[in-house]
Simulated scan of single mutants.
Amino acid sequence: MDFDFTPELRAFAADVETFLDTEQVPGDTSVFDVTRENMAQIVDTPARRAFMKKMSERGWLGITWPKEWGGAEGDGVYEYLLNEALARRGAPQIGKGVGIIGKTILAHGSPFLKQKFLPKILRNEVEFAVGYSEPDSGSDAASMKLRAVRTTRDGVEGWVLDGQKTWTTSAHFAEWYWVGARTDPAARKHFGITLFLVPLDHPGITVQGIWTMGEERTNSVFFDAVFVPDDHRVGELNKGFQYISEALDLERFTMFTYSPIAARFELLVNWLRNAEVDDEPVRQDPVTRRRVARLATEAEVARLLGLRVVAASMKSGPPPTTEASEYKLYATELSQRVANAAMDLAAPGSQLRVGTEEAPMAGRAESTYRYTVLDTIGGGTSEVQKNIIARRRLGLPKNF
């Protein structure tokens, strides 16, 4: 497989870097903040929204969308190059609204939903939260219990939603909730779920914050008789899990980028070049050299697995499921191995908090060690990815 980029792609990547050089202000972390690790991708402040608006004006948010809806119909590799460049600098990324919600609406949404949401997404006028996980159904999204009961209110056909979601990262600042609910309790669990778009300012919705070990906020969201008109139902009734699965294939790749892992590894290597223990250079220790060499090899494997997803996604058809799971599993566990290595090799100094100038790597080891736990959970745990690979790539039975 040829992974060389064309002159047009290299020119686009250079254009992105020039734009980011112009936008990034040294010392200002309001938009660019690598210490937020994978959470740097969310658009949760006015400054980050303003930054995304500038990308919208350049036509980059819809670079892979159909021209009919304001896109450029570019290959997925353009989106890959853009997201990797953004992630490398700790800038917000385009994965959720453009990818998860936008691409699902493009594929399965009604004309009403397309007209209502697609222009707003491309103009960066709306933020979404995604609601799949529940207290009793985290990794197993198909076992969700949030109820949606068909009803009529004031002559409008719709649904009443009751129940709870959890681990909804963006619910405290987003305008709309992309949420799965059980519409047919009698159906097998994968076939009784429907997707809805619900305004988060609905009076029946309560959002409660949960603070993670990475010092980022996620949320529990409670539904109390929340009425949703049927025209805000996404796609066909009871086919929501199919759409969720397609969206998760996108999420597993676009929201767990490779470049931050490479940057953290490079930070570790640069520190090791000058580090000493008992007046002896750490770089000469054979155990350290072997560990770093292994990580360097694994980083290249992760990069190529990502490129394989890009190549597969350029074919017609649904998102590449097994390729996305293979990348997500390998890259996020590599992310943890890099974090673990930084903690081990920097010894006691690695426990100093991020931003401590005298700490090894300015405290990034401690920060990444806490944050990278999320990487192997979000978008489906490592165990979920292994099951997907086992069934769909290796052809193993479901109950093996």
Results as ranks from 00 to 15, higher is better:
173 F>R: 03
191 F>W: 11
244 I>H: 05
129 A>W: 00
168 T>C: 07
206 T>Q: 12
270 N>I: 03
192 G>R: 00
20 L>R: 08
342 A>V: 02
179 V>T: 01
384 V>Q: 01
149 V>H: 05
379 G>W: 00
386 K>T: 05
47 A>Q: 02
80 Y>V: 09
153 R>Q: 15
372 T>E: 06
63 I>W: 00
76 G>V: 14
118 L>R: 01
57 E>Q: 14
355 G>A: 11
362 A>W: 07
10 R>Q: 00
277 V>N: 09
331 A>W: 04
276 E>L: 14
127 E>A: 05
264 R>V: 15
371 Y>N: 12
390 A>W: 04
346 A>D: 11
285 D>F: 02
191 F>T: 07
335 S>Y: 06
282 V>I: 15
115 Q>G: 15
205 I>V: 15
199 P>K: 09
1 M>G: 11
24 Q>H: 00
217 R>K: 15
90 G>A: 08
127 E>C: 11
181 A>N: 05
170 S>T: 12
103 K>Q: 00
261 I>Q: 03
355 G>H: 08
239 K>F: 02
246 E>Q: 04
50 A>M: 09
128 F>E: 01
333 E>R: 07
15 D>S: 05
315 K>F: 00
380 G>D: 04
154 D>A: 14
8 E>Q: 09
24 Q>I: 02
330 Y>V: 10
369 Y>D: 12
58 R>H: 02
307 L>R: 10
291 R>W: 13
168 T>I: 08
8 E>P: 05
202 H>A: 09
24 Q>E: 04
306 G>T: 13
114 K>R: 02
331 A>I: 13
288 T>H: 07
345 L>H: 09
153 R>W: 11
352 L>H: 07
116 K>F: 08
125 E>I: 08
110 S>N: 09
127 E>H: 06
15 D>V: 03
104 T>L: 07
326 E>P: 02
120 K>L: 12
335 S>E: 08
54 K>T: 11
159 W>C: 11
270 N>P: 01
344 D>P: 12
4 D>S: 13
138 G>D: 12
62 G>R: 04
234 V>F: 00
335 S>T: 11
387 N>D: 12
123 R>Q: 07
184 D>T: 11
365 A>N: 05
257 T>Y: 05
389 I>T: 01
64 T>E: 01
133 S>K: 08
